[in-house]
Design a protein around this nucleic acid. Structure first.
Lengths: 127, 127
DNA sequence: GCCATAGGGGATAAAATTATCCCTATGCAA
DNA sequence: TTGCATAGGGATAATTTTATCCCCTATGGC
């Protein structure tokens, strides 16, 4: 999401959504904020595989795209809360639909993905 | 989608979907195939911003993930057709929902994205 | 012979995305 | 006084993803 060298494609709705939703942790961040996990440290505990830094960066992008808003309390230790904006709220059903499809097909997806992963490992051994 | 060094996250539905749907052109490929553009050359004309090579790679991944099936006709010049599998069909409503949200919010998204892009360019000039 | 069509793919370069490392600050508790 | 919790961010390394380049198949038409 930096200063890109390859021009953006903003032709259709799918391209536009991609620009704001691509990002390894973004959908999960929105989802957890929706569930009421508003503070950075809570989100970090919910998503332990991501580093604090990366979550900050992605939260900032979500904020720049007006999907969430940030409230900074002038207290010590610091306290910050994120909330979905109306715009962000309107995305929740979409994320829900994506997640549901994943959940409904969990077993199949898992085995497909692992099978392919396994295959790649084997191929690279021969390499 | 290679032999990864960073372990996969396959915790929830969102992770699983990500594995099969992340890829710059994948959703568009599925969408256009659904619209009846079955042949590689048609798809390439529909998505001129992607090179032929990249589309082949992404089509292969969609095939490995059983979202599409490939039919090769033994004729000259070669003829190939892709079709959605039932599994792939079941994803269409989800992609539809994503695209619709993008279309409904087209103007806003476009200006948000361009504004941020512009900002990045300016920041990097100061650099 | 040469080019066009329709499809494929290896090797490598470039770009974009993520991860890692290390630093800032305050106040409370052991 | 060291440690922990809160939150933030610059610089850089590592990884992953895309793009580019060039080559291949086979047949038919000029």
């Amino acid at each position: 999401m930096k200063n890109r060298k390859i021009p953006l494609n903003l032709n259709c709705g799918l391209d536009l959504v991609g620009e704001v939703l691509y990002g390894k942790w973004k959908m999960r961040l929105l989802w957890f904020i929706k569930q009421g996990h508003k503070r950075p440290s809570e989100l970090q505990r919910k998503i332990p595989d991501a580093s604090r830094r990366v979550l900050n960066v992605q939260l900032k992008e979500l904020e720049d795209h007006e999907l969430i808003s940030k409230v900074v309390y002038a207290v010590v230790p610091p306290k910050v809360e994120y909330h979905l904006t109306e715009f962000g709220e309107s995305l929740i059903p979409v994320i829900g639909a994506i997640g549901q499809w994943g959940d409904r097909n969990e077993e199949r997806l898992r085995s497909l993905i692992l099978a392919q992963q396994q295959f790649n490992v084997e191929v690279s051994k021969e390499g």
